[in-house]
Simulated scan of single mutants.
Amino acid sequence: MDTDSLRWFQLVADGMTVTEVAQTYAVSQPGVSRALARLEEQVGTPLLRRSGRLLRLTQAGAAFKRHVDSLVNDLDDGLAAVEQVLDPETGLVSLGFPMSLGTWFVPNVIRDFARVRPRARFALQRTSVGEPGAPSKLLVAGDIDLEITTSRVFHADLEWRRVAIEPLLLCVARDHRLAESTSVDLADVAGEPFIMRRAPSGMRETVLELCAAAGFTPSIAFEVDDLPTVRGFVGAGLGVAVVPALGRRVPTGLGPVRFVPLTDTGAQRDIGLAWLTERRLLPIAEAFRAFILGGGRGSRARSAAH
């Protein structure tokens, strides 16, 4: 079976006339009709029946159509993959990243990459929270090309490189006694309730380590699943929190909360890029990796303390 016959069968089955198919492919109408007739001979049964100007699917045709759709889609994916290999200016980069980087870092670096590779396309995947230091299952399984992480990751089959350092901030309610401070130590809030990310969380582990270095164990009032919820609880006056800067210049406010720089040593987190060492990336994904590792404009985390 030639692929043109299968594509023409798809179009006719989806409601186009033979004349319209012929015009779309710049071939003769009898040529399309003969191709459809040959396809029916190869299958061994009528696939189409005439209904006025249109051809309708027979029962056998409807059963066949589902598999033709799948086959042609797979074929098109294969052709697209070849196109990516042959043309390093285009193609698809599959990229994973955590939610906290989706509001600033990832869109910025993609924007800047698009200035040099405007035809690049991206398939974006949110990576789920796992054990601290562990890469996402998507990357380990090879379902994505590259993963942007918020901490160093370790795995025998992966390589990881730091690409930026993001400051951590103290988040307090706007009426908090430290809300107007230009900087603070964690020891300044040692006796206050903390809003903390639920385990497993690399951010949680970092906060616990920072508190221990400051000489106290935080009193955890609430454990929540994401940063917007952390801010909501802090804004309601239910506690304080340590949060990433997310590209903000501080001190600054956001709704009912205020972000203040921390002076504690280690009050920061790594932003890095990870990939499978044995996986050969297509040229466009390789170009994106080189762009980030080379300090592409959007890949630099802005210091929230300046």
Rank of each mutant, 00 (worst) to 15 (best):
A214M: 00
L54V: 02
V230I: 08
E89G: 10
A80T: 06
V109R: 14
E209Q: 14
P118M: 03
I220Q: 13
A164E: 04
G253T: 15
W275H: 03
V93Q: 02
N73F: 15
P200I: 06
G232K: 08
L262K: 12
N73W: 13
T206L: 14
V242A: 10
N108A: 12
T217I: 05
S33T: 13
S219A: 15
L262M: 00
V21F: 12
G96S: 07
L86P: 00
D175E: 10
P283L: 02
Q84T: 15
T3Q: 12
G239K: 11
G191H: 07
D157L: 13
R117M: 15
E159W: 00
L281V: 09
L92T: 08
P218L: 04
L47G: 06
A35C: 13
P251A: 02
I292A: 06
F194N: 05
A22K: 14
R121H: 10
R66C: 04
W160M: 05
R248Y: 02
L282R: 14
P193S: 06
R53D: 07
L168E: 07
Q23H: 14
W8C: 03
T103S: 12
A213S: 14
D76R: 06
Q23F: 12
T45G: 04
A13V: 08
T19A: 14
A80P: 00
S183E: 15
D226L: 08
G266F: 08
L55D: 10
L178G: 12
L238M: 13
I148D: 02
A80S: 11
D4S: 14
H306S: 14
V106W: 00
P261M: 00
